[in-house]
């Protein structure tokens, strides 16, 4: 309820409310942007453009409860636009991943090893708790495609994580 109130206030021009909304969603925005781009500058660019776009067109949002979905939708569009415009190759070697532990690095590398289309679905499904139907709408692909890609992500991640665990046990970590 509080969330809806912020959205309504922001729609009336309350910048503080808008800032609160963005601060509440910045982690999600980073996760999704990071699923498209490994470079921090690219992530920062798409997030910045998304914030500005959201601010400019917030009054067009009809249902405040869908703010987060709407925001992620804008972000995904911006990511797609940047990929098209920069012809970004997103499967290059991992760059400067800011993580806190070796374990985190392994998990991040496991996610990074997925193709971009699978990676985004993984983030939306596992970290953002978005249902398959909504992911299909967000990415403008059929539900069946989401399911099959999710299945690929599931088996690949499970295998990767299992191998890491076995190696850790063997190395006595």
């Amino acid at each position: 309820m509080e969330y809806d109130k912020w959205v309504k206030l922001a729609q009336k021009g309350d910048q503080d409310a808008f800032v609160l909304l963005i601060k509440n969603n910045e982690n999600s925005m980073y996760r999704v942007a990071r699923s498209f781009f490994k470079d921090d500058i690219d992530c920062a660019d798409v997030i910045q453009e998304t914030i500005l776009k959201a601010f400019q067109s917030l009054k067009n949002l009809k249902e405040p409860k869908y703010f987060k979905t709407w925001l992620i939708r804008i972000l995904i569009n911006e990511c797609k636009k940047m990929i098209i415009s920069k012809k970004k190759v997103v499967n290059e070697v991992v760059e400067e991943t800011k993580v806190d532990s070796y374990h985190s690095i392994e998990i991040q590398e496991a996610i990074d090893s997925l193709d971009v289309d699978i990676r985004t679905i993984t983030v939306l499904f596992y970290l953002e708790d978005r249902p398959v139907k909504e992911i299909a709408k967000l990415l403008e692909i059929p539900e069946g495609t989401v399911k099959s890609r999710l299945n690929r992500a599931r088996s690949k991640l499970a295998n990767l994580l299992q191998s890491e665990n076995e190696r850790s046990v063997r190395d006595g970590k």
Binding site: D40, A44, Q48, K98, H103, E106, L127
Partner: peptide
């Protein structure tokens, strides 16, 4: 995945 989630890098945080 949630336990190992990286924090937002400083560069991006500052830009936001």
């Amino acid at each position: 995945l949630r336990e190992s989630e990286p924090e937002i890098p400083t560069t991006i945080q500052k830009r936001i």
